[in-house]
């Protein structure tokens, strides 16, 4: 998922009477679940909000390579190394579909990357947390991709055609990642006492950051209403978070690990688990750039981009020479 705190560009939801004819026709399409396609008319605010959302999602896939890449060279078996490489390759591929999808809205990938590097676009807060032991890699697949899937399954129904289609494709791969992640942490939880300790440590550290992935509570979540009306956002943050907790708690219990939050209890009346809120102050600190890895992640990405400039320039220069030679030959 990886799109959180998307500030909707909007001056508030308009009633049908306030809408222009174009806006009304557009809203009618959305209400009838007809996808909006790149060449269709769309309100400027819808376009801008989607660029923010899809762009943030794409950036998250790309930055998300770093905490996982942190363990590729230390993966404990050839099979685990292969699985992790395949996963990271998938994530980079997701970044590619999502950038392409955002490009249909009239912005280039390079422009989005520049906005990211200038701090004017964000990526999911989760990738500002470190991966400290091998069980973290299992936990990232299981909890982080698991949380992402919950949001992305909902977003398969999103109103913008290219985004919706990207989500459908991405969901298939993410489900696979979540299963592989769970399998990896099972090996740890059912392994030696030292392995189990690593698994517990990973769950303890990543639980609340995973809950934060759904964004602030609905009460705090400004501008959601317009995104819901446009079907850019399909379910509320709290609804998705609850679904995640309900799905994940039995999985933690199956692993024989302690629950990372003493307040987690089944609530018979509501038919859901009760649980503690994450520390929202910490969440806003991370969003503002004060998470444990924000500075390093951005430094790494900027260096990769700057150090690679000569490669991009070189390949482009060669392609131009080749095209010119072809024209000359014709």
């Amino acid at each position: 998922m990886y799109a959180q705190m998307i500030k909707t560009v909007s001056s508030g939801v308009k009633s049908r009477d306030e809408m222009s004819d174009e806006e009304r026709a557009f809203q009618d399409k959305i209400d009838r679940d007809i996808k909006i396609e790149p060449r269709d008319w769309m309100p400027e605010d819808y376009r801008k909000t989607l660029i923010r959302q899809i762009g943030q999602h794409a950036h998250s896939e790309v930055v998300g390579q770093l905490p996982e890449g942190n363990w590729i060279t230390r993966a404990p078996t050839l099979e685990r190394k292969a699985i992790l490489l395949a996963k990271v390759q998938d994530e980079a591929g997701h970044g590619l579909y999502l950038y392409s999808s955002a490009e249909t809205l009239g912005i280039t990938r390079d422009e989005m990357i520049e906005l990211l590097h200038e701090g004017r676009m964000k990526y999911s807060s989760i990738f500002n947390y470190p991966t400290l032991n091998w069980a973290d890699i299992g936990a990232v697949g299981w909890l982080v991709d698991g949380a992402a899937i919950i949001n992305q399954v909902a977003l398969q129904r999103t109103s913008y055609g290219p985004y919706s289609r990207a989500m459908i494709r991405i969901c298939k791969e993410e489900s696979f990642h979540a299963r592989q992640g769970y399998h990896a942490i099972m090996k740890m939880a059912f392994g030696t006492p030292e392995q189990k300790r690593q698994a517990q440590d990973a769950v303890n550290r990543l639980w609340f950051p995973a809950l934060m992935m759904f964004g602030p509570s609905d009460a705090e979540s400004v501008h959601s209403e317009q995104s819901m009306a446009w079907k850019i956002k399909v379910k509320s943050n709290d609804e998705l978070r609850r679904q995640f907790v309900d799905q994940t708690v039995p999985q933690i219990e199956y692993l024989g690990l302690d629950l990372p939050d003493p307040e987690i209890k089944w609530n018979e009346e509501r038919g859901h688990y009760d649980f503690s809120d994450p520390d929202w102050k910490e969440f806003f600190d991370v969003i503002k750039g004060n998470g444990p890895c924000n500075v390093d992640r951005m430094k790494n990405r900027k260096e990769a981009w700057e150090d690679g400039a000569w490669v991009r320039d070189g390949l482009l220069a060669h392609a131009r020479k080749r095209a010119a030679a072809k024209v000359a030959a014709e």
């Binding site: 890449g69 590619l96 990938r109 990405r301 690679g308 991009r312």
Partner: peptide, 13 residues
């Protein structure tokens, strides 16, 4: 594999 996430352009990653 040491290149993961650090290459000049996403296609190269």
């Amino acid at each position: 594999s040491e290149w993961c996430g650090h290459s000049p352009v996403l296609e190269e990653d």
